[in-house]
Amino acid sequence: MRMSAGVEWAVHCCVVLSQAEHPVPSSRLASLHGVSKTYLAKHLQALARAGIARPTEGRDGGYVLMRPPEQISVLDVVQAIDGPEPAFRCTEIRQQGELAAPPEQCRKICGVAKVMADAERAWRTSLSATSIADLAGSFDTSGMRRVLRS
């Protein structure tokens, strides 16, 4: 399983936003994490399209979470950035090539597809059971809140 770097960036940004009392500009989020401002902006827009964060306008504009952090799962963020498609897509390779099995022998799910689907289900279950608030609780956020106030 490989996720894009944008997933890590977006999850960290959501944790920061969960601790912020005011909107946080995208340039500030990029600076806090030492990442590309333009690349991060693309991911913040994906979070906005998914209804996780929203941009605010004006002199004090920036991003805020649209829901309480307890109601945003890590899976929500992963899907906003990398999409909802499963990591593994069965192409029924067992019906192709020199070792092709006839369709009547392929009525049951392939063992490879089954183990991959089971792993996908476990992965999604774990990510959906962990909220942004849970993650924030695992960090020492006192320094984060102090930096956000300045």
Rank of each mutant, 00 (worst) to 15 (best):
V24G: 00
S36A: 08
A129D: 14
R94A: 06
A30H: 01
Q71I: 00
C106H: 12
A136S: 15
Q19W: 06
A5L: 13
E98V: 13
L47K: 00
A10D: 02
A133C: 05
G62D: 05
Y39I: 09
V147Y: 07
V147D: 02
E104C: 06
I72F: 03
T56E: 15
L44I: 08
R145S: 10
D134W: 01
A53H: 01
P86N: 10
V16N: 03
G58R: 08
V64D: 05
P103I: 05
A113T: 08
A100H: 07
G58Q: 09
R145P: 00
V74M: 02
V77M: 04
L148K: 07
A80F: 01
K114R: 15
R124T: 06
G34V: 07
G137A: 07
C110K: 03
Q45C: 03
T141V: 15
T38D: 12
R146N: 11
V78N: 01
G97P: 02
E98K: 13
G83K: 00
D140N: 13
M1P: 04
R2A: 10
T141S: 07
G51F: 03
A87N: 11
G111S: 13
C13L: 01
L135D: 04
R145Y: 02
D82R: 04
C106G: 08
C90M: 02
S128H: 10
P55W: 07
W123P: 00
R124S: 07
D140M: 00
Q79M: 12
H43K: 14
G51C: 06
D82F: 05
T56A: 03
P84T: 13
V115F: 12
A10P: 01
Q79S: 08
G58C: 07
A50L: 06
V77G: 05
K42N: 11
Y39G: 07
R2L: 13
I93F: 10
L65D: 00
V15C: 08
A133F: 03
S27N: 09
C110E: 06
R124G: 03
P86W: 04
E98F: 11
Q96R: 15
L32P: 01
D118G: 07
D60V: 00
A87E: 14
G61W: 02
